[in-house]
Design a protein around this nucleic acid. Structure first.
Length: 592
RNA sequence: GGCCCCAUCGUCUAGCCUGGUCAGGACGUCAGGUUUUCAUCCUGAAAACAGGGGUUCAAAUCCCCUUGGGGUCACCA
């Protein structure tokens, strides 16, 4: 039998050997010597927070919260080209919405602050430089002057020769005079870390177990870019030390980086934090779940339908011609989210939910997402599946984190959502639905009175899997009376046509009954329609309900019919029934 | 391709560390039932230890190999 699992390291000590501290230069030493558990979530702010990142944040947060620890958010914005302030803000808002709060980090709605800041790496350049200079002086790092083009060429050559590429350490062999003259002329250069030869580095990972790598596998990686910003490797190591991070919990795509980080920590005299690498989240087809998935759907649709100009939405092209051309010119060009959403609407395709905000927009409650995400790669053991944040923070531990990658199962998420929504009280559901509408669908608030809105909530509650379900199925409520389009699907045909009295006949007969109702309430409508059905339709309510449903909504799906009519209001109902009747022949021909 | 990691129903997983229950739960699927539509809801069913070698009285569980999957090889993080 194959080794299914490496023996899992049990509960390694979470505190550090105090001797380690003495190796750390006193002048740079943090005042704090607490042994408090400190975890951090360190996103690079490009685009939106996606569910994989959210799960990482969740695990970091839960680990700290369950142990009286501190949770820190740090923005890794050392890539000037990709980072944006708007994205940072969006990340923080997403975290907040999920209920993940941070003790230290960017200040946002009551979270953040702390004395180990600034928590934006771009504002910590002087700190990195200090450590960089020290490393340079000690010979642990050196300057290299190759241009990116030269390096690309070298890589391509190695590739062609089917050899693994490794930097040739040319910078290390440069005579001091040469370096001095290059520096004097201001030649751009990077700083590379000098990886020790023939050593091995072992990562003690709380999820994966021990991972040993030879330093011969590593080349002298860049730690400072030509623009003066540190690379991820350097910044992360410096900040984790200075911010007293005790546990680094991050995605498995970083396992290969960890030996580099440990080497750096050794060279700098830093402590080595505990590590835990959690698996990646993938799509049902096994591919990595990524923000690009949206672009992929759009691209496939456009190609499939042979669309060669930006389609229109609300009378205007979704993007301008230049943007369209740019987007079409390369698979690497992605539309920004707003444009993507508009294009999807114009094409009438659904974009996969990838970002936390997508799920919010799709009508999931944050607690549901948290519960589902927590279960993706962790389980409390036994048969427990449904739990809240308190349970999670209390029970979460690294030794129950699953090693293998998990596929994101939207059906299961939806089932969880159904359960949480069904567990809400009617008042809670109404409140959530109202908030959702305020944010995404204000037209419902504008069209309905408070009483009608409450009816919308109560009549949809038990049929809703998400907060978006009522919106989707009740779109007809906010349409104008003369804009209802009638489906001619099989169920509609079945309900409306056939031998007399068919749907249209009942509709015509029930119109005066409705018109005669003065107090337009669910109860009065029900009483009259039920009486009509008893007298004229063999007491089969469906015979009357379905035609009415079709007349007012255009299709066969709506909340219970009496609620639907009440929400719509008498005037709209009469107008829609009359209009439907008027279209009798144009819809199904003379046959009816 | 090099290096690293992973492997229980279709999916998420429990069980593995501390070998010995008809391998448990949930989602999904299928078959019935309830319901004015849709969705719910109720009942039931099918469904997995990747393959091969060891160790052992006994292997999903410990060891090795094979196969398959994933990650990573940037002046991104």
């Amino acid at each position: 039998m194959p080794p299914r699992r490496r023996p899992r390291p049990r509960r390694r000590p979470s505190s550090f050997d105090s001797d380690d501290r003495t190796r750390y230069p006193a002048c740079l030493m943090s005042e704090k010597t607490t042994m408090t558990i400190r975890t951090r979530f360190a996103p690079s702010p490009s685009g939106h927070l996606h569910v994989g990142g959210a799960r990482t944040a969740l695990f970091c947060w839960a680990f700290a919260r369950g142990r009286d620890g501190r949770f820190i958010v740090r923005i890794e914005d050392t890539d000037q080209k990709r980072s944006s302030d708007a994205a940072s803000l969006g990340f923080l808002a997403d975290l907040k919405w999920l209920g993940i709060d941070w003790d230290e980090g960017p200040e946002f709605e009551g979270c953040g602050g702390g004395d180990a800041g600034p928590y934006f790496q771009a504002q910590r350049l002087d700190i990195y430089d200090r450590h960089m200079e020290r490393l340079l002086a000690e010979g642990g790092a050196y300057r290299a002057f190759e241009t990116p083009e030269e390096l690309d060429a070298a890589r391509a050559a190695a590739r062609a020769a089917k050899q693994p590429y490794r930097y040739d350490r040319a910078g290390l062999r440069l005579p001091p005079e040469t370096i001095a003259s290059y520096l004097a002329e201001g030649r751009p250069h990077v700083v590379r870390f000098r990886v020790p030869d023939e050593e091995s580095v072992t990562v003690h990972d709380h999820v994966l177990g021990d991972i040993t790598v030879s330093t011969d596998e590593l080349d002298d990686f860049v730690i400072r870019k030509a623009d003066g910003y540190p690379t991820y490797h350097f910044a992360v190591v410096v900040d984790d030390e200075l911010m007293d991070i005790t546990h680094v919990i991050r995605a498995q795509e970083h396992v290969n980086n960890t030996p580099r980080h440990i080497l750096l920590q050794r060279a700098l005299g830093f402590r080595v934090p505990e590590y835990a690498h959690i698996s990646v989240i993938s799509n049902p087809d096994g591919s990595k779940m990524s923000k690009r998935d949206k672009d992929r759907v759009l691209r496939a649709t456009v190609t499939e339908r042979g669309i060669d100009a930006p389609p229109e939405l609300d009378g205007a092209p979704v993007v301008d011609a230049d943007t369209w051309t740019w987007w079409r010119s390369s698979k690497d060009h992605q539309l920004d989210l707003e444009a993507a959403v508009r294009l999807a609407a114009a094409l009438r395709v659904e974009l996969p939910e990838i970002n936390v905000d997508d799920f919010r927009r799709a009508g999931y409650l944050p607690g549901t997402l948290v519960n589902y995400l927590a279960l993706l790669g962790w389980s409390p053991g036994g048969d427990v599946e449904k739990f809240d944040r308190a349970f999670f923070t209390q029970r979460f531990d690294l030794d129950r984190v699953v090693k293998s990658a998990a596929k994101f199962d939207r059906d299961k998420l939806l089932a969880f959502s159904l359960d949480t929504i069904q567990a809400l009280t009617p008042a809670e559901f109404c409140t959530h639905l109202r908030a959702h509408c305020e944010r995404y669908h204000p037209e419902f608030l504008a069209r309905l009175t408070d009483a009608q809105f409450e009816l919308l909530a109560s009549s949809n509650h038990e049929r809703s899997k998400t907060l978006e379900d009522p919106i989707r199925t009740c779109r007809f409520l906010v349409q104008a009376d003369d804009e209802i389009e009638y489906e001619t699907s099989k169920p509609v045909r079945k309900a409306m046509t056939g031998s007399a009295p068919n749907g249209f006949d009942h509709l015509a007969a029930v119109l005066p009954v409705l018109d005669a109702i003065d107090a337009w309430t669910v109860e009065t409508i029900e009483a009259q329609i039920a009486a009509y059905a008893r007298d004229h339709a063999d007491d089969k309510l469906g015979k009357v309900a379905q035609p009415l449903r079709i007349a007012v909504s255009g299709g066969t799906v709506s909340p219970p019919i009496f609620d639907t009519l009440a929400m719509l209001g008498k005037a709209s109902v009469l107008a829609r029934v009359r209009r439907c009747l008027a279209q009798r022949e144009s819809l199904f021909g003379a046959a009816v």
